[in-house]
């Protein structure tokens, strides 16, 4: 296992630690929201933190509706914000 993982967040290259969740990575980068709601386009970020509320959804490697609080970062992940309802891949 390498010490550092290299990933991109909205196209910007950054590093993560093995075991880190996508949510912790984003919060560490100063992000507070990374999704907009389907209806009113409200910003949302982490809420329940344990996989229950489905508020912290993010797109990872092109796949939408990934819970950022539960997903562990993997080397090479491409992470980006989710706008409203994105078509499931």
């Amino acid at each position: 296992m390498s010490d550092r993982l290299t990933v991109t967040v909205d196209g910007e290259r950054t590093t993560a630690v093995p075991g880190q969740t996508v949510a912790a990575l984003l919060i560490g980068l100063g992000r507070r929201s990374w999704r907009t709601t389907r209806g009113a386009g409200r910003p949302r970020g982490i809420f329940c933190g344990i996989g229950v509320c489905f508020d912290c959804l993010v797109v990872v490697n092109g796949e939408s509706d990934v819970r950022a609080c539960r997903r562990r970062v993997a080397d090479g992940d491409e992470i980006r914000v989710q706008h409203g309802a994105e078509n499931p891949s």
């Binding site: 996989g51 990872v60 490697n61 092109g62 796949e63 509706d65 990934v66 819970r67 539960r70 997903r71 562990r72 993997a74 992940d77 891949s89």
Partner: peptide, 8 residues
């Protein structure tokens, strides 16, 4: 979490 077979 929330990955599907083949994704990623």
């Amino acid at each position: 979490a929330d990955g599907s077979a083949g994704a990623g």
